[in-house]
Structures are given as C-alpha cells and as structure tokens.
Design a protein around this nucleic acid. Sequence first.
DNA 1: TTGTATGCGTTATCAA
DNA 2: TTGATAACGCATACAA
Lengths: 330, 330
Amino acid sequence: MSDVAKLAGVSTATVSRTLQNPETVKEETRQKVFKAIKALDYMPNVLARQLRRMETKTILVVVPNIENNVFSQIVGGIDAVANERGYKVLLGNTNHRVEKIYDYIDHFKQRQVDGMIVLLSNLPDPVLQDLANEFPIVVTPDAKATVEVSTVTLDNVESGKRATDHLLKLGHRRIAHISGTLDITSSQDRLQGYQQAIVEGGYFVDHTLIKEGDFTFSSGFEAMSALLNTSVPPTAVFCASDEMAMGAIKSIKSRGLKVPDDIAVVGFDNIKFSEVFEPTLTTMAQPLFQMGKKAMTVLIERINNEALEEQHFIYQAELIVRESCGVIFR
Amino acid sequence: MSDVAKLAGVSTATVSRTLQNPETVKEETRQKVFKAIKALDYMPNVLARQLRRMETKTILVVVPNIENNVFSQIVGGIDAVANERGYKVLLGNTNHRVEKIYDYIDHFKQRQVDGMIVLLSNLPDPVLQDLANEFPIVVTPDAKATVEVSTVTLDNVESGKRATDHLLKLGHRRIAHISGTLDITSSQDRLQGYQQAIVEGGYFVDHTLIKEGDFTFSSGFEAMSALLNTSVPPTAVFCASDEMAMGAIKSIKSRGLKVPDDIAVVGFDNIKFSEVFEPTLTTMAQPLFQMGKKAMTVLIERINNEALEEQHFIYQAELIVRESCGVIFR
DNA sequence: TTGTATGCGTTATCAA
DNA sequence: TTGATAACGCATACAA
C-alpha cells in the first residue's frame, strides 16, 4: 500500500480512503491512485483489514453431515446469498458429534467469523442461548421453540397434517406413521400433524401404528416390517423422510404386496431420487435451497444490527403427488 | 493478552511464548500464565496472529456444485483431515460457472487462504498452471495431465476397462457405452477403457454404440432411447454414472424390456441410491471420501513445503456386482 | 529464561 | 480534501 501511495504521490491514508470511501477523495486524486494500483497490481491484505476492522466477512455453517443431500441443499442456498453479499462460508462438519460444535464456538471467541448458521444442532438449550445472546446466529431447519434465537423452519405440523390428510382423502383409515428420531422438533411436529389430521378427520389415533425410525432407508425397512407383522396391518403409511419411505416400500414389496395397490406410501423431503424410484414417491417437498438463502439473509441482518429482535420464518412444504399413494377417487 | 501478562506478572512476550513454544518457558512461569489465561477466559485473537504470521490455516475448496453427492462426499473427506490437522475449510461453490473461480483466486492474492483444492475445474490450462506455480494447489478427482500440479485421481481407464470386461465375461458382445461429457478427462478415460476392453477381448469397437451423455438421469434416458431405436440394439450398456444408468434402465423398462434379462447395465459411482434402485445397480465404486482425505493430506504437505515436486495419487475403483448386470455363468 | 521493542498492513482519528 | 500518526493483537529478533 505504501508503494501505491508513493507512486501516486499521496499518503497511505488517501489510498485507503480511495478504496473504502471513494466519494471522499477528489476525482483527480482518485484517478492517480487507481492508476498506481493497476500499475503495481496491488491487492489489499485482507488479514490486516480484518484485524483493524475486527470483522472477517466470513460466516460459519455448522452442519451434521455435508454428505447428506438435505443439508447440502441448504448449504447451497446459504452459499448463494453469501457470495452475492460478499461473505465467505466456512464449513463446520460435526459428523453428528455434538462436542465438535464447541470447537466451532471458539471460532467466535477468536473472532474468526462474524456469524453462524446452525443446521440441526443438538446443543443444550442454555449453551445455544448464551451463544445467541452474544453473537449473530440463525438456526435452521430444525429449531426448538425454547430458545430465543432467529430461526428459519418448516411448518412441520402442517406438513404432517397435509400428508396424512391426503391419505385420508384417498379413503384410508388405518394410516401408520414412521417418524424420524423423536429427539428433534421436526420429527415431533410431523408426528403431531399426523395425529391432528386423524383426530380432525373424526378418527382415533392408534399408537400401535406409530413407529420411530431414524430417517434412514434401513430404519424405514425395519419399521415397516414390524407394522406388517401385526394382525391388522395399515393400508397406508406416512414416512417422515423419503429414504424411510423407500425402505418401507422395499419391505412391502418383499412380502409380495404392491404399492400403492395394497399399501399407499407418502414420504417427506422430495429428494432427487423420489421421482426415479419405482413407484415414484408422493412426498412433501421442503424448499431447502430457499430456506438456506433466507437463513443467510437473516444472519446478515443480524450482523449489521438491522434486525434487533430475533426473527422467525416458517416455510410451507408442498405436496407432490406421484404414484406411491394411488389416485384420488371422488 | 496484556491483561493475562499483567495478572501473571510477566510480559506479553512470555504469554505468547507459553502459547506457541511452551518448552521455552520455565515450568513455573508456564503454570502462572496458564492460570491467568483460565482466570480471564482468554482466547488469542486469531486475526492478529494470522496477520503476524501471514498464514490463515484455512484452505479453499472450489466445487462445481456442493449439492451433488459425488462432490459432497469428497468435501467430507477433505473436511475430516482438515479438522484433524487444524485447518478450516472455506467453501467455494462455482455453480458450474467457470468465471467464479477467478474470485476465489483473488483469495490467494489477498492472503485469505493457505492453499486450494480444485474439484473438477474447467480452468484454462495456462491459468491453472500459473496459479499452481505460485500457490499450493491440489486438483481432484478430474485432472488434465497437461498441467504440472498435484493431483488425486481415479484410474478411469482401468475402471472403464473393468466394467466393460465384466460385461464381456458375462457373454455380451454388443456392449454400448453412455459416456459423461467428453470435455473432461474422466469421461474420455472411461470411454478409452471401454474401447480397450473390447479390443483386447478380440472384438471391434462399434462407434454407433457410443453415446455422449452429461451424467444426468435424463441424458441417460435419452441416450438409451437412441440406442434402442437402432436396428440392432446392444445387449449391454456401460454408463459413466449411476444416474445415467438409472435413466437408461428407465428407458429400457419403458419399452417393455427387462434388466438384466434383455439388457445388462453397469453404472459408475456407487451412489447411495444404487443399492435401493430396482434392479440394484452393478457399478464401479470410487473411494471418494478417501480421495478427499488424500487431497487434503497432499495439500498440507505442499503448504509446509514437505513435498517439493508435484505428486500424483491414483486410486482404483471397485466393481460392485449387483442385479443390473445379471449373473456370471461359468 | 525473560523482557523490550518493533513490525505485520490496514483503517480511523485528528489536525491541517 | 489530505496527511501524520496511532492502534488493532500478536510474534519474534535481540538484548539482558
């Protein structure tokens, strides 16, 4: 920078100003400085700038598992907005190991990042709360209502309800539910939506028809197998993830039964392969990329102190009707 | 830091030393300093450290599309080693837009990252070469041999050969190939392996049986449909990606033909869904996570100047035999 | 083994 | 509108 200043015949202060607030520098000087910058192929040292300004223009994304498509889609959305707004994205893979997040928390204290987006943390409430009080944080897509922090979520209750409603409308009365791990809010909410739909439809919830899975193919297979082993198996199943829905269908097929003829299935997530699978999956599509974008937008507002209170954005899932649930008869 | 020094009754230099080279500080002093650090809950300001040391302990991963599972698996491997070795991973999504990489190149010049791993860049050779001459860079999993830069790749020729060989061993003689986009080396190599296998088997390459796809489901569908429209369709197909293999199978099924009975199919990648698909896919499994780990390891060596010459690591794919290719008869 | 002093490359404050 | 100068927080050369 001092080289540039020398060549342009000004002080380093003026060079800095030309870069930061061009309008405060006389047109003529500005030209001289820019010419010198080009001549020397000068690039500011961002490290020094960051030290001086105490900001990094970097945000941290804590993700349980980047290899999971649900999360990578959200990260895609975050990254899109980050790029647009001049932020860099630091990846924090926890590999589902909660302790790891404490390492990332240190990033804040060490001033390595300006803000953080937490995907599906299992942080204890008080820890998250303390952190959120001190630093800009957004939680998505699964957040507990018990912590005061900005969130971007899906209306999982409504989504579970709609999925179940769809099956009710198709005439099903014995509808089972294979839930996700019930320690996260999304799973609880989808289950609740399922129950609401049944009650509001005028029927009773049969708890033997509810099985807890863990979002994986094999857990869907196991849960469905258990359901099929009962004396009166369900005629339809609402699964909290597409992967589990596929596992369930595999199980159904393995018994020589057909989907949707014998048992109708609705999934959740609308993963890429849900339209390749046979039968193609009826499912609830989450606007994951969109949610990622929103999370980043909200985070930037908090970093800039534009949003003083925590904000909550709730998205709706879209029912995508395909083969696995059969056709609506009216 | 000066607070810590004061409380411990030493100079800031000693505090710094205690943190950086504990062995150069007297045991007793060390204890005092650590006690003060704990008492004040002190954390070093990494920004300042970075400025002073001119290193960031951060590496940049340029990825065409993080939402693609092939890439996110590699990133998973990179991240694993990075964490272990104290590096952070900055995500650079190009969304397949080559120009974007130039933004990331500026990160180097601005000293924001210590090194870079490029996933499947379409950078012009000279640009990449200049960059690689100046900075620590590793390219994976697709690299051109024309640039002198460290690489971690798959032996795509051998892989294509093995896949095709497998079909030859099953008795097939009219074997088609649906390639990836032929502007990348991996696709060219897999095609070459396919041709080698046929020639070495004592047969002739029929160019009407080679179609170029773009790794997507729909391109596999289209390519297969074209192959089926010829007067003498193939009895087997080797596809350069599982997605294309699934598209191809969909096309085959749509004609009322069966896989593997009428046409055998081999894919590439061993994506998660390949064992869920019906029929389950025979495919070539790339050790993507492993390759990501290796890429990061090699990069660290270059950053530390432990490896002066560029290095090349070549992995072998593993043939995973499932339903889509039928059974070997001996 | 420890302390002093300097500099890393910016930006912000103040005075001119 | 510009320049001189201090400061950001740390690491290190050198002296003690």
